[in-house]
Design a protein around this nucleic acid. Structure first.
Lengths: 228, 228
DNA sequence: CCTTGTGAAGCTGTTCACAGCC
DNA sequence: GGCTGTGAACAGCTTCACAAGG
């Protein structure tokens, strides 16, 4: 994955925002949307920092990668900044996703309220279990795995979500890739191999809790005896 | 949060493993468990790297923070290394968690198959909706929010999961903290403020997809016209 | 005054080459 | 010879102080 690292450039056109900043832009966008709803027209980096849990200098540096959209001595125009971030992260259009695997987690994701307001549209559900195929979940009819390729191409879906058991993850990933998908969110507790040019992000529920458990253990050397 | 950064020390006792390494230890542990099941007794850093998607030098450096558990020229004893990692991240005991909010996501989490084998035990479910209280989900009876404190103290629960709408997240977090919880996994799309000493990890489903959408957008400057 | 925008310094994490040991 | 363990160089991210400008 050779991504060109060019945060700044000679002219203004070539962007290249650091990954860490990209990961925070949706947070800022969410806060700005809330401010818009409250009728707030202008905000300072302190205000936004308060709302997002980021410290003010970091927030300003993040925004500076997008351009100089603030006014010194005043702050940021909420609506203007909101639009600029939305444009930068591609939130001016909706993104269609397919969820593969409609067990407990896949079903929950298909019903998740937070997607629609963030430009995410669940366009298709796919499963391997014949008993689920044809049933309707959150108003969407579940399609067979055999039709994965057709569904993705027909509806021009660009993002795939893997919500299957770990044992099926690689096979599903292969199917998504061969159907032209280049962005995958993987909830299965398994490593998936994909060709260059395909992005995979992984969310592992157990690991998040295991990380917390590690820190929790260090806080309390109480039970089961202290260390020698 | 002033955590002492001491990856190495004079004697061998004082640990202090980098966060990035801690986040990968559960991945190694999972791979080692799989190797154990396959009856593999020894593995090299190359083998483990292959299984986990981490490159060999990084993996060795990670393991070196735990101690020198390998044998030069040979590799690592699977069972021994597995135990050492398990001990380090507190996987020799089970961790009880409470899930607050049993909507779609909370219900899915309570049924998640991946927890039990990783030392995570869902010990209680709590919800604010009177219609859900008293019902049984995944074999666990849902408790009222009013009993949150009692449940946590009675069962000595140490980790809380917030799976409520964003609007309830802060209130739930306050309740967890006042019941003595010092580790929280927050699925709600909202920032929660907690006192020092309490760890919060956040999983935001929309943001993961928005990050993918950003990269997807950059790959295909096709639709909606290229940039000027 | 005020707040933004940013160079420079510092810190964390990654990479790599090779020393150390079996 | 093979593989681990690690110091040192490197890259990326964060912090901070302050210059720039309304």
């Amino acid at each position: 994955m050779t991504i060109l690292r060019t945060p700044r450039s000679a002219d203004g056109t070539t962007r290249g925002i650091p990954d860490a900043t990209v990961a925070r832009l949706p947070i800022y966008l969410r806060a700005l949307n809330a401010l818009t709803e409250q009728g707030v027209a202008t905000c300072s980096s302190n205000d936004l920092a308060q709302d997002t849990g980021v410290n003010p200098p970091k927030l300003r540096k993040d925004l500076s990668y997008l351009g100089s959209y603030g006014t010194r001595g005043v702050g940021y125009d909420v609506e203007y900044l909101r639009y600029q971030i939305a444009r930068e992260i591609g939130q001016t259009q909706d993104w269609d996703v397919v969820i593969v695997g409609v067990g407990n987690l896949g079903s929950a994701l298909s019903a998740y309220q937070g997607f629609s307001s963030r430009g995410i549209r669940v366009a298709a559900l796919v499963d391997a279990d014949p008993r689920r195929i044809g049933t309707s979940i959150s108003g969407i009819v579940v399609t067979a795995m055999a039709d994965l390729d057709a569904v993705i191409r027909d509806r021009q879906i660009s993002i795939g979500i893997i919500a299957t058991p770990g044992s099926a993850a690689q096979e599903v990933a292969d199917g998504l890739v061969s159907a032209g998908i280049t962005s995958i969110l993987n909830f299965a507790p398994a490593l998936v191999q994909v060709p260059d040019g395909v992005d995979v992000r992984k969310v592992d529920l157990s690991i998040e809790l295991q990380i917390l458990a590690y820190h929790e253990q260090r806080k309390a050397p109480a039970a089961s005896g202290g260390r020698p």
